[in-house]
Design a protein around this nucleic acid. Sequence first.
DNA 1: GCGCTTTGCCAAAGCGCTTTGGTAAACGGA
DNA 2: TCCGTTTACCAAAGCGCTTTGGCAAAGCGC
Lengths: 343, 343
Amino acid sequence: MVSIADVARLAGVSPTTVSHALSGKRKVSPDVQVRVLAAVKELGYTPGRSAQSLASGRTRILGLVVPDIGNGYFAELAQGVEQAATLGGYNVLLCTTGFDHEREKHALEMIRSRAVDGVVYAAGAPPSNSELARLLGDLPLVLVDEEVPGAEATAFVSDNHEGGRLVAEHLLELGHRDVLVLEANANLVSSRERVRGFTEVWTAAGAPEPRIVSGGFTHLGGQSAVEPFGEAFAAGEFTALFAANDLMALGAVDHLTSVGVDIPGDVSVIGFDDIIPTRYARPRLTTIRQDVAELGRAAVTALATALARNGGLDGERHVYPVELVVRESTSAPRTEPVPEEVR
Amino acid sequence: MVSIADVARLAGVSPTTVSHALSGKRKVSPDVQVRVLAAVKELGYTPGRSAQSLASGRTRILGLVVPDIGNGYFAELAQGVEQAATLGGYNVLLCTTGFDHEREKHALEMIRSRAVDGVVYAAGAPPSNSELARLLGDLPLVLVDEEVPGAEATAFVSDNHEGGRLVAEHLLELGHRDVLVLEANANLVSSRERVRGFTEVWTAAGAPEPRIVSGGFTHLGGQSAVEPFGEAFAAGEFTALFAANDLMALGAVDHLTSVGVDIPGDVSVIGFDDIIPTRYARPRLTTIRQDVAELGRAAVTALATALARNGGLDGERHVYPVELVVRESTSAPRTEPVPEEVR
DNA sequence: GCGCTTTGCCAAAGCGCTTTGGTAAACGGA
DNA sequence: TCCGTTTACCAAAGCGCTTTGGCAAAGCGC
């Protein structure tokens, strides 16, 4: 390996000077600058990051913690993170947790020992606030996509509450009144907010209290969550279904169409997230779009800025806008009763 | 930060002994072992990786180079890589290249300076063989998904050739004879192999030479590639379409259905890869499944094994089986001419 | 009980960089 | 011209670990 000493020798200066010439922390004469650069080039020198890290205490690596990188949603997030990180001169260390608390802890321990400069945490609800602090020390941390209820942590989240409201408005506008809501498990703030926004508008409009069931945020969960309601849907007891994410929506659609329920003829379905498959599903899924790559980018930018000026994060909740995307899975409910022969 | 010296002090031994106790490189007495472990626990000590790396010359980090982590295909690959890496005690550093040669070089330079222990390269065709070697030195490298033509590099790839054959057999069996083939640009070995396998079987069966056009491996590329053939499809000049990946297939389906071509009624469409959206598309896409996560896992395992026994990679091409998945986008061609009024 | 090997520990030398304090030489104001 | 200041460089001390050689003490065969 070619070291800074080699460069120094070739340039006829001390390693110190080479370091200064390259980092710019102290001025060197133009003459020396040129000689150092030439030597660097000639030898193909790249500073060894391990040594830099050890000496400076900084790694220029950001840790990214997600539940599952195979999941398109988090993959998109990772894309934003990686992009912004590269721009800021950072590299990204990937950790996955599979929604498992043990693995979350493990990931955080690893991140600490790696002396990563900062963490983008997007693995659902973090273990707990105090736990996070204990594991991470004062390592800069940014929460993305999900937040800790009463925490003072910096977070970048979509406007889930507003998204829920948009869903309700859309469905109300179409004339729906009887709706089934699929939420994730109740301790995900994002899901709760979506449902809260929805219910707020829904009940304010005088529509009947929505029926809420849990679907675990997965495709399979969506499928099984609607299973018990097959007859209810066929009987027209519900004319609409709001799933708090697209995966559940898609799962629900799969099950419903398989038992002969027509979408959106018999029931309108609306999801949340606007993941890629919604565009390929038939009918194309109406949903709420959130720009998760942008969330990732913003998080990293905040982290990089804080690191650059050696200050802390702002500790605020940054809320990003969402948008209703009307596609084909929602329509006005049937006004006449369902004809006998169709049932 | 709590250092090895702190542990040593608390345990009443030297740092050397702590190091040995923890690494197991030399034996320590059971008594000391216990005391060290207790001290580690009490202080919450985790060895600083930067220092370990500098001293040992190993980082226990594997570099993963992909074109775009937002792409579900590579996300799945990354999942396999991350999983196997964690299992082997490695972390994954993520680099994306966006199919850009400059960024590829940049990624490799970065990887070298980071003193990563090994590289999983899945960013399409690498710059070139000699270039790779120059940038990486003798850093262990494994190619995944795509290979360099005449290279001696270790590679983990799907059986693209066999996949192409399976496509041809399937289409032939259904009774098709006139087919349009969408390949990527010609310098991707994977695409070439798929088409080669296909053509081999196709012509051997005495069917007319397939028409081959390029679609760039993207959704948009698939759309625009079939555009000039709208009339030809409507006129029944082609009864089948083989796209060398699902993205192109999905794009083609989008365009064709938008101009009134029925799938699979008018034309059968078959893709390659079995990415997630194929399951949501309507009609569900018939395709060739490859287990890309497994490819990633295998690559990392090979890398980890080689690193563990301090030997090199085997330099071989490891080929993984593929599988035909028949869904709804392929069927027998119409036997009668298309009725006038349908056109 | 003697020499031999083995066992268990420690001292010290790095790994390749950053960073600080020091010091000559060049500069500048009066 | 003299002295204070700036400029441009270097020496040396780490950063926190691993690794090697050395060295007592213990174990062993005879």
